[in-house]
Amino acid sequence: GSKLPPGWEKRMSRSSGRVYYFNHITNASQWERPSG
């Protein structure tokens, strides 16, 4: 298991139950796992 880039964390969408990734530094969110 590799770590996520700085700022990123795994989140669960309440509406759909899907996992997404959220960056608390930039407030960005995306479905794809961030690389870096």
Rank of each mutant, 00 (worst) to 15 (best):
Ser13Gly: 06
Ile25Trp: 08
Asn23Tyr: 04
Lys3Trp: 13
Ile25Met: 09
Ser29Gln: 08
Pro6Asp: 10
Asn27Ala: 08
Asn27Val: 04
Arg11Lys: 08
Met12Ser: 07
Arg14Pro: 14
Ile25Asn: 08
Met12Gln: 09
Arg33Gly: 03
Gly1Glu: 14
Gly17Val: 03
Asn23Pro: 00
Gly36Leu: 13
Ser16Met: 08
Glu32Ala: 09
Arg33Ala: 10
Arg11His: 06
Arg18Ser: 04
Glu32Gln: 11
Arg14Ser: 12
Ser35Phe: 11
Pro5Val: 02
Ser15Thr: 14
Glu9Met: 07
Ser15Ala: 12
Ser29Trp: 15
Arg18Phe: 06
His24Asp: 04
Trp8Asn: 00
Gln30Trp: 04
Pro5Asn: 02
His24Ala: 11
Gly36Lys: 09
Gly17Ala: 06
Thr26Met: 05
Phe22Arg: 03
Leu4Asp: 07
Thr26Asp: 04
Gln30Thr: 05
Gln30Glu: 02
Gly1Trp: 03
Ser35Ile: 12
Tyr20Arg: 02
Ser2Ile: 13
Tyr21Ile: 00
Leu4Ile: 04
Arg11Gly: 03
Gly1Gln: 12
Gly1His: 11
Ala28Tyr: 10
Ser16Ile: 06
Lys3Met: 13
Ser2Ala: 12
Tyr20Ile: 02
Lys10Thr: 10
Ser13Asp: 15
Gly36Phe: 14
Ile25Thr: 07
Arg33Gln: 08
Gln30Ala: 03
His24Ser: 12
Arg14Phe: 09
Tyr20Phe: 09
Met12Gly: 03
Tyr21Gln: 00
Ser29Pro: 01
Pro6Arg: 08
Gly36Ala: 13
Tyr21Arg: 00
Asn27Leu: 14
Pro34Tyr: 01
Thr26Gly: 02
Glu32Asp: 10
Gly7Pro: 07
Val19Gly: 02
Pro6Val: 10
Ala28Ile: 15
Arg18Ile: 07
Trp8Asp: 00
Ser13Thr: 10
Asn27Gln: 13
Lys10Asp: 02
Asn27His: 15
Val19Ser: 07
Trp31Ala: 05
Pro6Gly: 07
Gln30Arg: 05
Phe22Met: 02
Asn27Glu: 07
Lys3Tyr: 13
His24Gly: 06
Ser13His: 15
Gly17Ser: 06
Arg33Trp: 12
Asn23Gly: 00
Ser15Asp: 11
Glu9Asn: 05
Glu9Gln: 09
Ser29Asp: 02
Ser35Arg: 09
Pro5His: 04
Val19His: 08
Trp31Leu: 08
Pro5Ser: 04
Ile25Ala: 09
Trp8Gly: 00
Arg11Glu: 02
Gly36Glu: 13
Arg11Thr: 02
Trp8Gln: 01
Ile25Arg: 08
Arg11Pro: 01
Pro6Lys: 08
Thr26Pro: 00
Ala28Asn: 09
Met12Lys: 12
Leu4Met: 06
Tyr21Leu: 00
Ser15Tyr: 12
Lys3Leu: 13
Ile25His: 11
Pro34Asp: 01
Trp8Phe: 01
Gln30Asp: 02
Glu9Gly: 06
Arg18Lys: 09
Glu32Phe: 08
Pro5Tyr: 03
Arg33Thr: 09
Trp31Phe: 10
Gly36Met: 13
Arg11Trp: 04
Val19Cys: 15
Trp8Lys: 00
Arg18Gln: 07
Ser16Trp: 07
Glu9Asp: 04
Leu4Pro: 15
Glu32Arg: 07
Ser16His: 11
Ser15Cys: 15
Pro6Tyr: 14
Pro6Phe: 13
Pro6Thr: 09
Glu9Phe: 06
Thr26Leu: 05
Gly36Val: 13
Asn27Met: 13
Tyr21Glu: 00
Gly7Gln: 05
Gly7Ile: 03
Arg33Cys: 08
Ser15Val: 14
Arg11Asp: 01
Ile25Gly: 05
Thr26Lys: 03
Tyr21Thr: 00
Tyr20Pro: 00
Ser29Leu: 14
Trp8Thr: 01
Ser15Gln: 11
Gly7Thr: 02
Ser13Ile: 13
Trp8Tyr: 01
Ser29Arg: 14
Pro6His: 10
Lys3Ser: 14
Ser29Lys: 14
Gln30Val: 05
Lys10Cys: 13
Trp31Gly: 03
Lys3Val: 13
Gly17Met: 06
Pro34Arg: 00
Ser13Pro: 01
Pro5Ile: 03
Trp8Ile: 00
Trp8Ala: 01
Leu4Gln: 02
Pro34Trp: 04
Ser35Gln: 12
Glu32His: 11
Ser15Met: 09
Gly7Met: 05
Arg33Lys: 10
Gln30Leu: 03
Ser13Met: 12
Arg18Asp: 04
Ser2Met: 11
Phe22Tyr: 15
Tyr20Gln: 01
Trp8Ser: 00
Gln30Phe: 05
Lys3Asp: 15
Tyr21Ser: 00
Lys3Gln: 14
Val19Tyr: 12
Gly36Ser: 12
Glu9Ser: 10
Arg18Glu: 06
Tyr21His: 00
Ser13Gln: 12
Leu4Trp: 04
Thr26His: 04
Thr26Ser: 07
Arg33Glu: 10
Ser2Arg: 10
Lys10Gln: 14
Gly17Gln: 07
Tyr21Asp: 00
Glu32Pro: 07
Trp31Ile: 07
Arg18Ala: 06
Arg14Asn: 10
